[in-house]
Design a protein around this nucleic acid. Structure first.
Length: 415
RNA sequence: GCGGGUGUAGCUCAGUUGGUUAGAGCGCCUGAUUGUGGUUCAGGAGGUCGUGGGUUCAAUCCCCAUCACUCGCCCCA
């Protein structure tokens, strides 16, 4: 073993880090439950086609960021770079259309071969929701309301800002695309190299270029909102009205577009300025064409995904470990007696740490380190009369109680 | 994939204009207190100075490469 570093872009989550992630997940899951979403899980890898066909030939994710390999059986496999494609595939594979609409959430690791940065790892974790089978804008409002409530539950309401935009339906988008290409063509020589490249592949993406020269040209570009057809216009207006009615603040950002091809109508992002270049903490949109395009029954859908790492970094909350009660035998030959007591107390539903080694001083010190609330001390002198010492570690007060009363006393004092 | 910065103890960081035993705070261990923690005091352990190569009598320090982290671009959660 020559290298004990973890693979680039991967990290160990030690208990403290994991606790922070877990808190984010707990809030997200509990809140999703209130909205009637249920957890599901799909495999961490899929056939490469599942992602390659759905994310779009021009997306960076497909063209350069996927972990793809061939199995011994010759199958082309990819570690999932995002969650929606897998859920859509599962929707089709399991004939879930008959149960539509379905409301699910997922939670787990995703993989993208990008250059690591703060808030951007190669293995990272996403929590996401999908609402599949509802055509109307109420579904969009519902998933955004859920996102808003989760972020609020994490205490991040003031640190993030919601931006939304409409990508229109297929008709609107292709019409706008023509208009947009015409416009940018007339400035082609002044565009950045990246944007010139996008002109042929995905001209909408030019709109969110950060290049300064591009920005000037974009400022004069045609506005998608003015090129939406009536149906698309009504759709996004309804979403906006709904958000306003629910007192969810948002801003329309005409330059908000999506990296993945399957989005239409509503696109939204909750963004922050506190994570440097990694501004998006939760983002999603509507993907009516996706399931049909994968070969399933034409089914609309809307959803989003949130980066657990980014949310955890943003959140000030550092949840503390539960506080145990320590059981300490004074001498080694009381070990088995102590072990029995420990077992009884755990069976009674109490969080007990058994102090294995060391002298009294050491064991109490360790109990203190573990943030124990109390220590039950077993000593020969007290045991002769069937007693033990119960010491409260916050106050330092201790009293002698009957061994047979320990469980009940602990439950009433610390349960 | 492109450009900049950083890498010294478990953690946060000093330091060496190239020269004998590389320091601090926190943490850890031991003792004062062999049946009582959090405070205090005394002592102690812990370092391939990221890795590999080069220059030099001599490299933790200079040079090159490489790895990791980090900031920006890109992309996105």
């Amino acid at each position: 073993m020559s290298n004990l570093q973890p693979v680039r872009g991967t990290h160990d989550l030690l208990p403290e880090d994991r606790r922070r992630h877990r808190h984010v997940e707990d809030v997200a899951m509990a809140t999703s439950g209130l909205y009637g979403f249920e957890e599901m899980a799909t495999p961490i890898f899929e056939f490469t086609d599942v992602f390659a066909r759905t994310l779009g030939d021009t997306s960076d994710i497909v063209t350069k960021e996927m972990y793809t390999f061939e199995t011994k059986g010759g199958d082309k496999i990819t570690l999932r770079p995002e969650g929606t494609a897998g859920v859509a595939r599962a929707f089709i594979s399991n004939g879930m259309a008959q149960h539509a609409p379905i409301k699910v959430f997922y939670n787990g690791p995703m993989f993208r071969h990008e250059r690591p940065q703060k808030g951007r790892q190669r293995q990272f974790h996403q929590f996401g929701v999908e609402l599949i089978g509802v055509e109307g804008p109420q579904a969009d409002i519902e998933v955004i309301a859920l996102a808003h409530q989760i972020l609020g539950g994490l205490g991040l309401a003031d640190q993030v800002k919601l931006e939304i935009n409409s990508l229109g339906d297929v008709e609107s988008r292709s019409a706008f695309r023509t208009v947009l290409v015409d416009y940018f063509k007339s400035y082609e020589s002044e565009l950045s190299e990246d944007s010139r490249d996008r002109l042929g592949k995905n001209p909408l993406r030019i709109l969110d270029s950060k290049n300064e020269g591009d920005r000037k040209i974009i400022a004069g570009a045609p506005d998608f909102a003015e090129h939406l057809n009536d149906a698309s216009k009504l759709f996004i207006d309804t979403v906006q009205t709904g958000l306003t009615d629910l007192h969810i603040p948002f801003e329309r950002n005409p330059n908000l577009v999506r990296g993945m091809d399957y989005y239409c109508h509503t696109a939204f992002e909750f963004i922050t300025t506190e994570l440097g270049a990694q501004g998006a903490v939760l983002a999603g949109g509507r993907y009516d064409g996706l399931i049909g395009q994968m070969g399933g029954p034409s089914t609309p859908g809307v959803g989003w995904a949130a980066g657990i790492e980014r949310l955890a970094m943003l959140s000030d909350v550092s949840p503390t470990r539960n506080r145990p009660i320590s059981v300490i035998p004074v001498s080694a030959d009381l070990g088995s007696k102590a072990q029995t007591l420990v077992q009884d107390l755990r069976n009674a539903g109490l969080f007990i740490e058994f102090s294995f080694t060391g002298n009294m001083k050491k064991r109490l010190k360790r109990a203190d380190k573990s943030n124990a609330r109390a220590a039950v001390i077993l000593g020969e002198d007290e045991l002769k009369d069937g007693n033990v010492v119960l010491r409260d570690l916050d106050s330092g007060e201790q009293k002698v109680i009957l061994l047979s009363d320990v469980a009940q006393t602990l439950k009433s004092n610390y349960g």
